[in-house]
Amino acid sequence: MDNKNNEILLEARDLCKYFPARDFFGRKKAEVKAVDHINLAIRKGETFGLVGESGCGKSTLGRTLIRMYDPTSGSILFKDQDITGLKGKQLLPVHKQMQIIFQDPYSSLDPHHNVREILKESLTAVSGLSTDEMDGRMEEILKKVGLKPDDMYKYAYEFSGGQRQRIGIARALLVEPEFLLCDEPISALDVSIQAQVVNLLEDLQKEMGLTYLFVAHDLSMVRHISTRIGVMYLGRLVEIADSDELYENPLHPYTKALLSAIPLADPRLAAQSKRVMLSGELPSPMNVPAGCHFHTRCMYAREECKNRIPEMMEVSPNHFVACPYAGENNS
């Protein structure tokens, strides 16, 4: 995986997605700032990993980027075209190029339809192919994801979790997208099956020149698959770097804590590693701290952190961090 190709495929500029939290009578009582002023550029052909704990907004960011959700403000550019304001049918050509695979292979496939019907639905929506052509395309894609053409006439319950995830991947790739949002695609699978799906995703990326946004909380798998990684905390990106750089030289205090919490599958290494423990609980996303969102749990927090929102700064080439004191705290 090289980074020679720096062409930007998908870009978020100052992107926000707020959800209203309503009380019993439907009155708006607060706002959940799931995605809060995010700037991000995903390069063609790369795998951008997005990590963070539950509730940090990583899935919302992914889904807003592919326009499953309407953004609250800011803009999204896909292949230099502004897709922020597109509505209804205008979105069809965009969605043809941006697809998603979901976390739960059990609930994301309609139990009343067989595989052929599931796949056909997405094809009919975007292409003018005849039934024969569609069948040909479906057979081809099933083979690509490691299933048999005969599997077309089976129902979802006849497949195991790993096979269902393959069907989900087939459905997403059927319309020949350029960009694929992988929303926790392996979290629900067994360890031995996770590797099958990750390898498949890597092969398909090479073969079809795909760009991935890989959202996950399994941090060792994210490092394995990603070219670059972004770390989110309470709706904001706190650090972006090439994946090896991020794991070897994390700068943001939150990234350090998050990475040191990864359980290492190597007892001797685990015994040597020092853990940065986070004190306290994740604040409620409805009532986030002012200033730097992380200051309530940060061991380096100073007075200024309570008031000033830290800017993303490039501290070394391609390594961005949203903490003005990141370099100083490195000891």
Binding site: S192, A195, V198, E202, S220, M221, R223, H224, A265, D266
Partner: peptide
Amino acid sequence: RALLHAVPKPRSGGKERLEPIPGMA
């Protein structure tokens, strides 16, 4: 052995290709 090979190895940075266990339980 297969189980240990199916996850990214922490020592080497975890970039080498994973060795999945074929089939299912």
